[in-house]
């Protein structure tokens, strides 16, 4: 096994919303091809954390280094990082006025400056990968929640990102559609994508995660492998949380 490089390095990251401190100093390092699952009660800062990683939220203190580039206010850096870090949202956030195909090819054409024909060819491959090539010409409003989320994943992948962020990707789905999205994510993890996933799907964490981060009160309370985390958690807070959800 080759030595994997650090691709995300967070050093004492702090973030305030007004007077409320959402992140109280997060320090963690994520390696290439690692799948990290972030869990924790609501309001614990886990969503805020992954949103600071592509600067949808601006951290006020500490440093975040993505693939060797530090996240600062420099617009050039931000756009570069954003095109290398894909993100999938809880509410899908597909563009309702564009077809599935246009949703996927928009950024490759206008940010990556890819020729349209090539972008569409790649988009079809991605749609096949997420299992819905027949929906290419439909509009998001005509798809089920699970299909929409799979389109959203394909849309992120179209930028050929090195890192994928998932912000509660299955929380807005009907139970019967959760599996189809998780299957796509598992396949993605197996293909070697670096992934950070905020989720409440403990099954997914057990099965796929290399590491679990447990967030509470804006801090990483506990981290470790899934076996360690689910079988012998150390902190009381973690035990309480697990007892409530399992």
């Amino acid at each position: 096994m080759t030595v994997k490089q650090d691709i995300i390095v967070c050093e004492d990251v702090k973030k305030w919303f007004g007077d409320f401190q959402a992140l109280k100093g997060i320090t963690t390092t994520i390696k290439e091809q690692e799948v990290v699952v972030v869990i924790g009660p609501s309001g614990s800062g886990k969503s805020t954390f992954i949103r600071t990683l592509n600067r949808l939220e601006v951290h006020q203190e500490g440093t975040i280094i993505i693939d060797g580039v530090e996240l600062t206010n420099d617009l050039k850096n931000i756009e570069k990082i954003r095109s290398e870090v894909g993100m999938v949202f809880q509410q899908f956030n597909l563009f309702p006025h564009l077809s599935v195909m246009q949703n996927i090819t928009l950024a490759p054409i206008w940010v990556r400056k890819k020729p349209k024909a090539e972008a569409e060819e790649d988009a079809m491959k991605l749609l096949e990968r997420v299992g819905i090539p027949e929906q290419a010409d439909k509009f998001p409003g005509q798809l089920s929640g699970g299909q929409q989320q799979r389109v959203a994943i394909a849309r992120s992948l179209a930028m050929e990102p090195r890192i994928m962020l998932f912000d509660e990707p299955t929380s807005a789905l009907d139970p019967e559609m959760i599996k189809e999205v998780l299957d796509v994510m598992k396949e993605l993890a197996l293909s070697g994508m670096t992934m950070i996933v905020v989720t409440h799907e403990m099954g997914f964490a057990k099965e796929v995660a290399d590491r679990v981060l447990f967030f509470d009160y804006g801090l990483v309370v506990e981290e470790g492998t899934p076996e360690h985390f689910f079988t012998s958690p150390e902190h009381d807070r973690t035990k309480l949380f697990l007892s409530q959800i399992l």
Partner: peptide, 30 residues
């Protein structure tokens, strides 16, 4: 227009001008 539309477009690396012209205005005008 929901905030998510801005976030999704930004997360894909679209510049502010592109995001306005391709995502926001078409929906707002409709």
């Amino acid at each position: 227009i929901p905030k998510g539309q801005y976030e999704a477009a930004k997360a894909m690396g679209l510049s502010t001008l592109q995001l306005t012209v391709f995502i926001i205005l078409p929906q707002a005008l409709r």
